[in-house]
Design a protein around this nucleic acid. Structure first.
Length: 360
DNA sequence: TTTGAGCGCACAGGCGTCGC
DNA sequence: GCGACGCCTGTGCGCTCAAA
């Protein structure tokens, strides 16, 4: 068992997963290093395979719900060397998706997918470990709860906001003043904010890692709460020439990606609207409620309530009018777990977001 | 019914400004 | 230079509400 500088719960998940894969498959993985700096990346761990020369960069996730699968795939694929997802539990559906995208994984139940010819392992369907067996407790950092995510979103759009007074932050993020303290402390604990200089000015650090955490938590915690319905349009190109700004709305997801990259042909429309504009928007766009089961995504429209205040938009750094900020477009695309969308997300990151990472 | 997250408000400490 | 005052900032507490 390895005990290093990495936080205790992550180390526990890693140790359990390594033990489980050995028990279920006989394949022995070796924990070579923890918290390895590789250029701009900090790898959670580097693993070796006994009797072989391969080294695998481990991305450890204590909590890996299905809603975050796209983000997880993206994080593993972005690793600077051959990667491996190490999670508490991967259910059979997630296992199949990960295998489709050739993302190797191991979990604490003994489920695994490893493809290192001539070694090929695919184990799925092992039951989730119970709480009594030491099932790791979920991370309860308030920075990654519903309101915390609104504050972090504002920071990701405008990193310098981290140094602003609490009242300004609360105003821009549209949360209560008391919430800001919880979020800042949560970010400090997690190592995303530190204070420097004589005046103890706050600064955002580890921008990419924070973005990954946000992109991971957003589709699970915040977006479902903001959902105003799923609709369908008869004309799949209804959105072309549609003046969304008239409704104080913003294109997200695939349509945002076409504005930022000209790379995608959108099938699904994602729209962010103020609550009060929904009825007028639906009538003008001629949308109807989506049926329970849809075999084809073409023409599908997801509408979410905009979770930022319209009058604080100058602070939120909208790169294109009527289009959500690059950070949100990136998160929407990653959440789909679709390979083409992930590619588009990568382009948005490179062109619009990466510069914040270099600053931070 | 219980629990926990979110909010608003009040309070305390720090800092700057002004008058003596 | 020192003290009084007021403003700004961050923290803590109690209430409300929603989810389980």
């Amino acid at each position: 068992m390895y005990e290093g500088a990495i936080n205790q719960p992550d180390a526990e998940v890693l140790n359990r997963a390594v033990d489980a894969v050995a028990r279920e498959t006989g394949l022995r993985l070796r924990i070579d290093e923890l918290e390895v700096r590789e250029g701009p990346y900090t790898l959670d761990a580097v693993l070796g395979v006994e009797g072989r020369n391969e080294r695998l960069a481990a991305e450890i996730k204590r909590w890996a719900p299905q809603a975050n699968l796209g983000a997880l795939i993206n994080q593993v694929q972005a690793l600077p060397m051959e990667g491996l997802l190490v999670a508490d539990y991967i259910n059979p559906k997630m296992a199949e998706k990960l295998r489709e995208q050739r993302v190797q994984f191991i979990d604490t139940a003994g489920n695994a997918y490893l493809d290192m010819p001539p070694v090929y392992v695919f184990v799925t369907g092992k039951r989730k470990p119970t709480q009594e067996m030491g099932w790791p407790k979920r991370d309860t950092n308030r920075a990654f709860d519903r309101t915390g995510l609104k504050v972090v979103f504002a920071f990701l759009c405008r990193p310098e906001l981290a140094a602003a007074p609490y009242r300004d932050i609360a105003d821009v993020a549209d949360v209560a003043l008391g919430t800001v303290g919880w979020v800042i402390n949560g970010l400090k604990d997690a190592g995303f904010i530190f204070k420097y200089g004589h005046g103890k000015k706050r600064e955002l650090v580890e921008y990419k890692r924070l973005l990954d955490r946000w992109v991971e938590a957003y589709p699970e915690k915040l977006r479902p709460k903001m959902q105003m319905g799923e609709f369908i349009a008869d004309d799949p190109y209804w959105w072309k020439g549609f003046d969304i700004q008239k409704y104080h709305g913003y294109w997200g997801g695939e349509i945002a990606a076409t504005h930022y990259t000209k790379y995608l042909k959108p099938a699904v429309a994602t729209v962010y609207l103020p609550k009060e504009a929904k009825a007028k928007f639906l009538a003008r766009a001629r949308l109807r409620a989506a049926p329970g089961t849809m075999w084809d995504d073409t023409g599908r429209v997801n509408i979410y309530q905009a979770f930022w205040r319209d009058d604080t938009l100058p602070f939120i750094n909208i790169a294109k009018p009527g289009v959500v900020p690059p950070v949100l477009a990136y998160a929407d695309l990653i959440a789909t777990a679709d390979p083409r969308n992930q590619e588009a997300a990568g382009m948005i990151y490179d062109e619009y977001i990466a510069r914040y990472n270099q600053q931070g």
